[in-house]
Amino acid sequence: MELVAKETGGLLLVQVLERRIDAASAIQFKDRMRDLANRTAGNLLLDMSQVTFLDSSGLGAVVAVMKLLGPGRKLELAGLTPTVDKVFRLTRMDTVFVIHPQLPESLRDAS
């Protein structure tokens, strides 16, 4: 599970460099995200633009990361590809997370 993290403007930008967050990789994703989240105190922005597929295990892992951040910190998402976007909409998770169509312009160079 390759994740690249960069602190920028008080925000931890995490780019997922994997094609799939699925039953085979969800636990690894959650563990790696927990390590990254523990290194910083701010909010997280997850760049999902390289992820072409996410199943219910992957979705559960993203929700678990949000929960482990606690109420004081936020996990926002950016760049959902069509199938991933469909899974978020069908499970109404699009109402739970702030989802940016793409990375905010100010952060594009950072990734």
């Binding site: 559960g60 929700v63 929960k67 499970t91 109404r92 109402t95 739970v96």
Partner: peptide, 10 residues
Amino acid sequence: PVELPEGGFG
């Protein structure tokens, strides 16, 4: 939706 029991998403 976050309160859905584990496995419910699938």
